[in-house]
């Protein structure tokens, strides 16, 4: 295939991922969040725009598009502006290796990389850079504190996620996401690896900065954390990045533990979406149920609980795979 066709495919793929994520993850995600939080807190949530408030986030997006970009006078303009690009970009890159379903011509995926899981870990680790840049560039103490907290938190919680990824790769014998799904044809990995699943869910919640681990943007302490100074569409892009990352983490959990697109009767993409939204619902349920941790509790939980547990689980799995099953 000539290179310009490849380039064109990449551009079209990027546009499809961006618009898909913006609609499915960000717009629908924010609406779901508001409806579910309303339901949990015995409220109704948005009702006015569209039937039962369905178009509320569309209206919000249009409003945000019209708002002025405000750059604080003492902000570092270059870093302030480039942080906005980095956060959603890193989140969107995750979607390259996620298999959404299967068709007659093979699995529905942008690129079935043979280092798929490693690629996901690498791209999702870039988000913290954007958060740090936003925190510094704003030249605001709340934003800086949010950025510092996020660095400590995300670096700590990347380790248990990495250990879980290694465990699953060991079990499947491959780093490719498609192979991992194929290996779950008979038994989902959640059955053989329940501990790894729980570690992954807890670490993923922290990695995407959601309550009870949302110290990065704790409203009662830091206004909005690293994006306090952002307005209009820049604010919306941070939201997009955050929701895109949450959906990517849920999609990875579906791929690693819940058999990916596999399921009876219904088409594969529908099964994938059902599992994805079930996990997203769990994330939202947790957010509106648990109170926020303190920063020392948060770091202790990762270093003293999740990492040793994940290491033990890895060693046990390696023993079973390499010694018992041979």
């Amino acid at each position: 295939m000539p290179w310009y066709v490849e380039l064109l495919r990449a551009v079209v793929g990027t546009i499809i991922i961006f618009s898909g994520v913006a609609i499915v993850a960000a717009m629908l995600g924010v609406l779901l969040e508001r409806k579910i939080s309303g339901w949990i807190q015995s409220r109704i949530g948005p009702t006015h725009v569209g039937p039962r408030g369905v178009l509320q986030t569309v209206a919000d997006t249009i409003k945000l598009l019209q708002k002025e970009h405000i750059v604080p006078r003492n902000a570092d303009a270059v870093i302030f502006a480039s942080a906005v690009v980095l956060v959603p970009l890193a989140a969107l890159l995750d979607y390259v290796v996620l298999p959404f379903g299967t068709t007659r011509w093979g699995p529905l995926i942008f690129r079935d990389l043979n280092i798929g899981v490693l690629y996901f870990a690498a791209t999702s680790s870039l988000i913290v850079l954007g958060i740090l840049m936003a925190g510094w560039g704003s030249n605001n103490k709340y934003a800086l504190l949010g950025g510092l907290r996020s660095a400590a938190q995300m670096v700590s919680y990347e380790i248990p996620i990495g250990l879980v990824l290694i465990t699953i790769a060991l079990l499947a014998g491959s780093l490719s996401t498609v192979t991992i799904v194929t290996m779950q044809a008979h038994l989902w990995f959640i059955v053989t690896q329940p501990v790894a699943f729980l570690i992954f869910l807890a670490a993923a919640t922290a990695e995407v900065n959601r309550a009870p681990f949302d110290l990065v943007e704790a409203e009662s302490e830091l206004v909005a954390g690293y994006f306090s100074e952002y307005t209009g569409m820049r604010f919306a892009l941070f939201q997009l990045g955050e929701y895109a990352e949450m959906f990517a983490m849920a999609a990875l959990a579906v791929t690693l533990f819940l058999g990916g697109w596999r399921g009876p009767v219904l088409p594969s993409v529908v099964w994938f979406l059902i599992k994805l939204y079930a996990l997203v619902f769990v994330f939202m349920w947790v957010r509106w149920t648990f109170p926020r941790f303190r920063i020392d509790q948060l770091l202790n939980f990762s270093w003293k609980c999740l990492i040793p547990l994940a290491l033990l689980n890895l060693v046990a799995t390696a023993y079973v795979v390499m010694v018992v099953q041979r």
């Binding site: 490693l118 680790s125 740090l132 660095a151």
Partner: peptide
Amino acid sequence: GIQVLIYAGGITVLILFVIML
């Protein structure tokens, strides 16, 4: 993949973190 994970995602974060302190 390792280059992004270790250098871009790890070392650079460490450097930024230290500069902020």
